[in-house]
Amino acid sequence: MAEAVFAVAAVLMLAGAIGVVASRNPVHAALFLVQTLIGVALLFILNDAHFLAAVQVVVYAGAIVILFLFVIMLLGVDKAEELRVEPIFGQRPLAAVVGAALAAVLGTVILTTADVLSGIRQSGGERALDGEATDIERMGRVLFGEFAFAVEITAALLTIAVVGAVVLTRRAARSDGAPAGSGSG
């Protein structure tokens, strides 16, 4: 059963990823991205990370991709991109070489290490996944216990991001009525 779910998720993800890279229209790319993200959410469920799977769907597939689509519509940049030409000389061959090299290196790592986790100490206590608590309860305890400070920092980061986005996109009204350059932010 698990193998079947994994196979379905893998096909979804890889097909979606190739679709993102290969589709000329950015709207299509965004939709392919949703497909990949749902594949990832499936893998999360397979690993009993139900909370994360939900967040993945809500935040990623919901909020972030919608944000992408909004921007695409807002700017009217849904024009198709000409993928057959490459203005930077040698960029594509080199990108292919780098991709192949990455594949070779990562493949070597995965294939040569017989089982990456054999012999490594398994966690216990509050952080153990095989306890009685649900996964959301476990995450809650760890996030607001051990990682409380990091969570606070994350809150600050989000606030800063929101303020930054507002500053970057604001059209400052000048006294002469002319729109200020966006670079003034």
Binding site: D48, Q122, R127, V142
Partner: peptide, 15 residues
């Protein structure tokens, strides 16, 4: 992260 966390029986990956 999630796969390794599951393998290590650790919620850290999910965090």
């Amino acid at each position: 992260f999630v796969a390794l966390g599951a393998g290590l029986n650790d919620v850290g990956g999910q965090v």
